[in-house]
Write a protein that binds this DNA or RNA. Sequence first.
DNA 1: AGTTATTACGTAATTAGTTACATATTAACC
DNA 2: GGTTAATATGTAACTAATTACGTAATAACT
Lengths: 160, 160
Amino acid sequence: MDIMENLGPLALGSSLKRLSDQLMQDGIRVYRELGIDFEAKWFPVFYYLRNEGPTTVTELSRAIGVSHPAIIQIAREMISANLLAVYRDVSDKRKRVLALTSYGKSKAQELEPVWQAIRIVLQELLNEAGSEILNELSGLEKALQKRGFHQRFLDHSGKS
Amino acid sequence: MDIMENLGPLALGSSLKRLSDQLMQDGIRVYRELGIDFEAKWFPVFYYLRNEGPTTVTELSRAIGVSHPAIIQIAREMISANLLAVYRDVSDKRKRVLALTSYGKSKAQELEPVWQAIRIVLQELLNEAGSEILNELSGLEKALQKRGFHQRFLDHSGKS
DNA sequence: AGTTATTACGTAATTAGTTACATATTAACC
DNA sequence: GGTTAATATGTAACTAATTACGTAATAACT
């Protein structure tokens, strides 16, 4: 009977936000309770660098889909935690390249089994709720890319 | 080939966040371009009050799923915009009841067709991407409610 | 009725991001 | 080669939320 549960499509935004916030909290809790000195929000940067090697700020920003000041801030924290080092690109002095330190690489090994457990839990949740969710979410992103919300809105509100 | 697209289940969080941020931006843009003096983030409070009538801070917080300081802040803005009025509950002086002003109610009438257009666009997007998304997302929330992420994680990482 | 616990609200500090703007370097073009 | 445009980074101010904490009012218990 809760009115907020009967929003239909209008509930999409809230629903996405609640779930995403929830998962982030869960991530934070996992690292905290395992006593691992790692912040959930570092994950995308860390994971990308581990898999792709040294990368510039802008390239990380583009790949991960957050603003470059966000990357700078996360990088600053990870540098304090000794996970990351920075150097200037020799051939283009504008660029600052971020790379895992050797300590960062060992941290990656420590984290791998945790990620694996998280993967399994998420997969279990996805199976329980409908295993097509990932595909459908990515379909949603693609649909938005093909014709953005704004364009669709105009098409529908414009007098035919 | 983008590494961030091949995270599998680990992509769930990022994917949810990107989409939710995107939709919020789209909402903001719609109101702005239509020249309507209304903020997208007011929607849940506004919509709830319009449908359910006067409601206390805590009840709104619970219904919408956001902290009570967030409600207070949003309410403050909506009061400045003349959409909301507050009064103390007579039988329980701790409670502050929020209610739409008559201007707020007329604003609701102005907004209804906009919401209708948004509903249609979202429904179209959902159909394009897999019309079960809403059900599956709510299934995901239910699954998490039934047995939280943390409990599931322990079950999987605990030595059998 | 008096003590204790709970609930409701408010404020302050913090968090995690954003946009807007400034500067340095490089690329493009004539 | 000099001027103009574009790119990469950095900083500042802002935004929208959170958690932590404090106080007033009510409820529960004896």
